[in-house]
Each structure stands twice: as C-alpha cells, then as structure tokens.
C-alpha cells in the first residue's frame, strides 16, 4: 500500500521536479489540511533558498518551448520545434523580441511564428509575424523603428535564421 510518506509532495526531491509556479501554488494554499503540515517552513528555510536550475538540456528546451507558445502562435508547430532544437541560439532572441516588439507596437498585437523553407537554397528561416490593427503606413513605420532600435543590433546573432514582418490583424 502506498503510504503518504512515499508520496510526499513537500519533500525536497519532488520540489525540484515541479515548476516553480506550482510550488508556489502549493505553499500558497488556503487548505487547512495542507497548512497543518508544519514542516513546510523548515523545508523552505533549508532547501528552497537554493535556486532551482534545470540541469536537463532536454527539459530546459521543452520548458522554453512551452513559454514561447504562450507568447507566439506556432503556425507549423512540429517543424518549428524541430528547427528550434537545431537552432537553440534563437530561443533567447525570441524571448527578447517579444519585449522589444511590445515596446514599439504596444500590447494589442498578436505574434505568430512561421517557418519558411526555400527548397532551391535548402534554407529555412523563421519569421515573427506581428499582427496589428494599425494602418499599413503606421505598421511599416513601427516595423522600421523596431529594426533600427533593436533588430539591427541582434541580426548577427540570428545567423540569418530569423526575420520579422508585420501583417494586418
């Protein structure tokens, strides 16, 4: 029979496997039963001061993809995930791009990711599509500003594998 001790959600090793937000939800509970487990504070003091770092390369990648999916709509998800696995240097840029795009285009936008394949050149390129309700002129002006203020400084690190364009919503 499974004992509670064997499935102890408050114990250290299990915490390390949970996403941090879930850990916080556990500790922020209003449940009387969970609150009554008094060892939580001791455990926190002892163990949670350590930073939780994902040491699995594979799981770290999965976690990043999950976060990116909250930011971007993946148009062809399987191909994009495969592409990002082999071009992992783009992940950091994609996180940064969201912040830079919102600074210039504002919050009322939709961001898509599309993978384009050029069979003649045998070249794949990922596109960030910024969908906004601005007029065509205004959107082009903002895209130019994004390029001048940020993208031009990051172009080298994209190794020609990432581009940005805009479309009407």
């Amino acid at each position: 029979m499974l004992s509670l001790e064997q499935f102890n959600y408050l114990s250290y090793a299990y915490q390390k496997t949970l996403p941090l937000i879930t850990q916080f939800e556990y500790y922020g509970t209003t449940s009387v039963m969970l609150e009554s487990k008094k060892d939580w504070r001791k455990l926190l003091e002892k163990n949670l001061m350590e930073q939780s770092v994902e040491i699995s390369f594979f799981l770290e990648f999965q976690r990043n993809i999950k976060l990116l999916k909250d930011i971007y709509t993946f148009e062809n998800p399987h191909d994009i995930i495969k592409f990002l696995w082999t071009n992992q240097f783009l992940i950091e840029i994609l996180f940064e791009a969201q912040e830079q795009i919102k600074k210039i285009f504002g919050e009322e936008i939709i961001l898509d990711l599309e993978l384009h394949h050029d069979p003649e050149e045998n070249w794949d390129e990922l596109f960030i599509i910024i969908k906004s309700s601005y007029s065509a002129e205004k959107a082009v002006e903002l895209e130019k500003k994004l390029f001048e203020d940020w993208f031009v400084y990051r172009m080298d690190s994209t190794k020609g594998k990432l581009n940005i364009t805009e479309e009407p919503l």
Binding site: Y27, R41, E45, M49, Q51, S52, V53
Partner: peptide, 8 residues
C-alpha cells in the same frame, strides 16, 4: 537565467 527563490 532568472530564478525564483521563496523566502520565508
């Protein structure tokens, strides 16, 4: 990376 620590 950014990390979150929970401090009592």
């Amino acid at each position: 990376g950014l990390g979150v620590t929970l401090q009592p």
